[in-house]
Each structure stands twice: as C-alpha cells, then as structure tokens.
Simulated assay, not measured.
Amino acid sequence: MARTKIHVGLEIGTSKICMVVGEVKSDGSVKILGVGQSKSVGVRKGEIYDFPQVRACVKDALVKAEDASDVEIGSVFLAVTGSHIQGVNHQGSFRLPDSEDTIDADHVREAKEIARAVTIPPDHVYLHHVPRRFGVDGFHQASSPVGLTGRTVEADYHVVHGIRSRIENQIKCVREMPLDVDDLVFSPIATAQVALNREARDRGALVIDIGGGTTDYALYVDGMIEASGCIPVGGDHITNDIHLVTGLPFSKAELLKVREGDASGDAARSVGVVKVGDEKGFAEAEVKRQLLNDIIRQRLEETLGLLLKRLPDGSVDKIGTGVFLAGGTSLMRGFGELAHDIFRRDIYRPEPPELSGVQASFKDPQFTTALGLIRYAQIVESERSPKRGFLRKIWPFAR
C-alpha cells in the first residue's frame, strides 16, 4: 500500500514569502498541513537584491510553517521568477537510417535530445524541458510514436531558461536555512498546476499571475504549453504611480489603491472624491476617484498589453476556456472586467481543487503559486525523482 508523502513549496515573491506544507495521501488527494507567511523585504521584481533581509524573511516563514504543520522541514520545491527567465518552443527531428522504417525508443530519444538542445546564452541555465508533442513524417502524435512506421520522428519541447547567478542566489538563500532544494519551478508553470485542469488545457487557457513586482504568464493550447514568461511589472508599480501623481506617501498610496481603487473603467464607479486621513494630525487630502481609477487602469492596461504582444500570433483565438487570474493584484476591483476588455475571453479566478485542510483565507488567488508547487511535487513524485543532479550542476553545494 502506497505511503503518504509530505512536500513543501516555497515562493519568494516581491510582496510576500510563502511556505506551504502539503501531505499527498495514498489515494492522490492532498491535505495542506500548514502555511508560513512573511512580508517580503529585499526582493525587487521577483529577484533578490538584499540577501540578508531575504534570508531573514525566509527563516521567519520557515518557522511559522513548521509551527503550523508540526513538521520538521528539510527540503522545498522552490518557485523562481524574473524577467531574465525565458520560455521558447523548439523542435528536434531525427531521420531513421535507410535500413530501418519502424520507430524505436532510441530514435525517439535522439529526437528528444535534439529538441532539448536549445542554444542559450553562456550565463544562462536550463530550468524546464517540457515535452509538448511528437510527430512522424510531419503528422503530430499525442504520445510517443514508438512502434509506428515512418522515416522521420520529431519531438517538440517548451524550454525554459534563465540567468544562472540569479537562480543560484535563490538556491543559496534556501540552503542557508539550511534546507535542500528538491526542484526549481518557474512560477507560472506552478500556478497552472492548480489553475487549470485537463479540459481547460485542451480547450486553451491563459494563466496570468500578477503579484507585487512581476506578471507571470503561461499559455496552454491543445493541452500543451505554448508560451510562458515574466514581465517585470506588478501591483507595486500601480502604487508608485499613485504616489507620484498624488504626492501621497507610498504606504498611503497602497492603502488607497487596495481600499478604493477600481480598474473596470465604469464611469459610475469614478464619481466623487476619496478623503485620505493624515496620521500626523494635518488636514485630510482629497483624491478624485476618476484620477485614482484612471491611474490604476492605465498601468494595468499597459501591463496586459505587453503580455498580449508576447503571445504567439493568433494564439488568443485558440483560448477556448478563458483567462485565469491569480496573484494578489488580481484581487483589484474591476480587474476582471479590464482583462475581459483586452482579451475578449471568459475570466476566472482559480480555486484549489481536491484539497483538504485549507484555511478559508488560503483559497485567495495570491496563494495559487504556492499551492501549485505542491501539485507539481505530486507529479514529480509520481513520474520521476527530483532533479538533484541538475541542482548540483548549477549549485555545487546542493545535496
């Protein structure tokens, strides 16, 4: 009888650091045992710029997660992001020897190796090689073509890579807890594990995870990942825009954005003014709702517009299911309406499926990536052992 397995996911974000402890039971169900959160300090646009501060925040999240779950944590699945990370599609083709016409495992292996061998900058390292599909003489196959007759076998992969040093810094931060890193996961790929089921992927779906400093995305078409990436813009940029235009302190601008802002573009929601109290006893400031909402909508329009330009031509027409919004900034009032205006597709906010032990607040979209790491770990456990050899290559002290 299969035993239960405990996995831990760690997301080091711009706004928060979140560690989730999940138990995968013998029947495949997942129970969340505990969550540890800490305000993120020292991270900008998803990347570490103040190592000691980030290390202290991760330590705080670790202590809270262990207390909440009553589990001694020894290793984590780590989500990574940043504008330096790129996702590209690459196809490899292998022609069978003239004396052979039946495809065997060695032929497929050759095609896979060619497809995985994407040329990347010397300072980059591979994060993922995600198989998309196979082909025989130009005809696409959903599964391995071993045993079929043909002259040429093709393999198609989605390859994700990023700057080695920036990824190493994240691993180093975790190792100094000290914790092992079971695997590295590009954040939108983790998010998609919770946001999308098989039907959604088959019909076409776009996942957008917009946090404090980055907007991550993953596009699935015909059941396969079509595109992924990270735009270095998030909710903090909206707050800074409000700060610059109104002259309010950054903290006040953040509260104003969260409590009063609306991105829908609905004129009825932009009537009147918002009074901002001054904690030092000075007279209240007033901000016109129209101005506030225009600032928010313009920045979000720009962000989603940048994302739209990065998607392959014509791919939006293949999104049959819709767009799934995750991340803290996706909670902005009116953001769903804005996303619908831009993509002209149904808009959803994912909820964790088939999970138990989850506090009500943990179903918040800002935790989707952390939950997705547990799902990703579950898949890794069922299919293969974690890539410890890979981690030794980019970080020699990984166990």
Score class of each variant (00 low, 15 high):
Asp313Arg: 10
Lys318Ser: 12
Ala339His: 07
Ile347His: 07
Ile342Lys: 12
Arg345Tyr: 06
Asp317Lys: 13
Arg345His: 13
Ile342Pro: 10
Val323Thr: 03
Asp346Gly: 12
Ala339Gly: 08
Asp346His: 15
Asp317Trp: 04
Leu325Tyr: 03
Glu337Arg: 11
Arg345Asn: 13
Val323Cys: 06
Thr329Asp: 03
Gly322Pro: 07
Leu325Met: 15
Gly334Asn: 10
Ile319Lys: 06
Gly336Pro: 05
Thr329His: 09
Thr321Gly: 02
Val323Gly: 06
Gly328Ser: 09
Val323Ser: 06
Arg344Ser: 11
Asp341His: 14
Arg344Asn: 14
Phe335Gln: 12
Thr321Leu: 08
Gly328Trp: 00
Ala339Tyr: 03
Ile347Ala: 12
Gly320Val: 04
Lys318Tyr: 04
Glu337Ile: 02
Lys318Arg: 15
Lys318Gly: 02
Ala339Ser: 14
His340Ile: 06
Met332Asn: 13
Arg344Ala: 13
Gly322Ala: 09
Gly328Ile: 00
Ile347Asn: 07
Thr321Tyr: 15
Ile319Trp: 01
Arg333His: 15
Asp346Arg: 15
Glu337Ala: 10
Ser330His: 08
Gly328Arg: 08
Asp313Tyr: 05
Ala339Cys: 13
Gly334Lys: 07
Lys318Thr: 00
Leu325Arg: 08
Ile342Gly: 10
Ile347Lys: 14
Phe335Cys: 15
Arg345Gly: 11
Ile347Trp: 06
Leu325Cys: 07
Arg333Leu: 15
Asp317Gly: 04
Leu325Thr: 05
Val316Phe: 02
Ala326Leu: 04
Arg345Cys: 11
Phe335Asp: 06
Thr321Glu: 14
Ala339Gln: 06
Arg345Pro: 07
Pro312Ser: 01
Leu325Pro: 02
Gly314Val: 02
Ala326Ile: 02
Phe324Ser: 04
Phe335His: 12
Phe324Ile: 00
Thr321Lys: 12
Lys318Cys: 07
Gly320Gln: 07
Gly314Pro: 02
Gly328Val: 05
Phe324Met: 12
Arg344Asp: 13
Met332Pro: 11
Arg345Thr: 08
Ile342Val: 15
Gly334Leu: 10
Glu337Thr: 04
Leu331Asp: 05
Asp313Met: 06
Met332Trp: 10
Val316Cys: 05
Gly314His: 05
Thr329Phe: 08
Ile342Asp: 11
His340Asp: 11
Ile342Tyr: 12
Val316Pro: 01
Leu338His: 06
Pro312Asn: 01
Val323Arg: 08
Asp341Pro: 02
Asp317Ser: 09
Gly328Thr: 03
Phe343Val: 08
Phe343Ile: 08
Phe343Ala: 10
Gly327Asp: 03
Ile342Glu: 09
Leu331Gly: 03
Ile319Leu: 14
Asp313Ile: 02
Ala339Pro: 00
Ala339Trp: 05
Arg345Trp: 09
Leu325Asn: 01
Arg344Trp: 10
Thr329Cys: 14
Val323Pro: 01
Ser330Lys: 11
Ser315Ile: 02
Arg345Gln: 14
Arg333Asn: 14
Gly314Arg: 07
Phe343Met: 13
Phe324Glu: 03
Phe335Tyr: 15
Asp317Pro: 00
Leu325Val: 04
Thr329Ala: 15
Lys318His: 07
Arg344Cys: 09
Asp346Val: 11
Leu331Met: 12
Asp346Tyr: 13
Asp313Val: 01
Gly322Ser: 13
Gly320Asn: 09
Gly320Met: 05
Asp313Lys: 11
Ser315Val: 02
Phe324Arg: 04
